[in-house]
Design a protein around this nucleic acid. Structure first.
Lengths: 133, 133
DNA sequence: TCCTTTTTATTGCAAATGCAATGAGTTGTT
DNA sequence: AACAACTCATTGCATTTGCAATAAAAAGGA
């Protein structure tokens, strides 16, 4: 019964360790690569929404985005209709890197699912979407 | 296709946030509760094996165990046959708390699986065990 | 309108984190 | 026996992390 929740945690932590090691040479470890992927796929989110969408503390996300801006990966823009909001966009540099990030994530996914048949993958995907966060 | 790996990460981070908030009053946040659960269930592992079993950096695990020892939750013991090893055991205090830790984990598990029928839970468990870390 | 409540970004601070390096014990090889 | 290679625990150090608090803007209610 508890196996499922523990397997989920174990897989996440293992993939996280691998991903951070992979992207450390680009100074995109500490989960920074996650921000880049998310912002490239959904540009224009404000800081808090971005943090929530990746389940990371807002203050941590704030500082991480600040660093990614300083390093030329992201760009912040104020919102005219709501002066509190700071919206996050990828730079050309981030968009150029995105295919590599995506390919790595895909490779991790395929490795994880390697023992499953296509039909089993479909069934797993259907079950996962029914899970509650 | 990528949904599965992302769902897995999202669930882990959400549960982690909730669990750390739950156990902060006991100073068992920062994933310290995970160590307690693991050591209660499998006492006597040496430090490195414990770290590996929960997919956490060995130096981080070392310092965390050190703190848990200082706080009276765990106990370290040297191994006679291999003088490098330091084996980790729960104290009576930890064993007394274990039921609460276990109950919380079970509640999280049940909440996560709430939308699934018992048959679906079984199928999901079978699929999860086939996943590669 | 005014006031309260909520939401957002931001900063302070103490603690946790993790890579790199060290030293001690063990194993394997010649 | 001697020596290299490996494994473990431990420490140094710089960075990251996240709770708590603050300030500004927006939303809601009387």
């Amino acid at each position: 019964m508890l196996d499922i929740i523990r397997d989920i945690g174990a897989i996440t932590r293992t993939i996280q360790i691998r991903s951070n090691a992979e992207f450390r040479p680009l100074d995109l470890d500490n989960n920074r690569f996650i921000y880049l992927i998310r912002v490239c796929e959904q540009p224009g989110m404000f800081l808090g929404a971005l943090a929530d969408s990746i389940q990371i503390d807002r203050t941590t996300a704030f500082r991480t985005v600040k660093k990614l801006v300083a390093d030329g990966w992201l760009r912040l823009e104020s919102d005219d209709s709501d002066k509190r909001l700071r919206c996050v966009y990828p730079t050309a540099k981030a968009q150029a890197l995105y295919p590599k990030l995506h390919a790595f994530e895909l490779a991790q996914s395929e490795h994880m699912l390697a023992q499953l048949t296509p039909a089993e993958v479909k069934r797993l995907a259907a079950l996962m979407t029914k899970l509650q966060a």
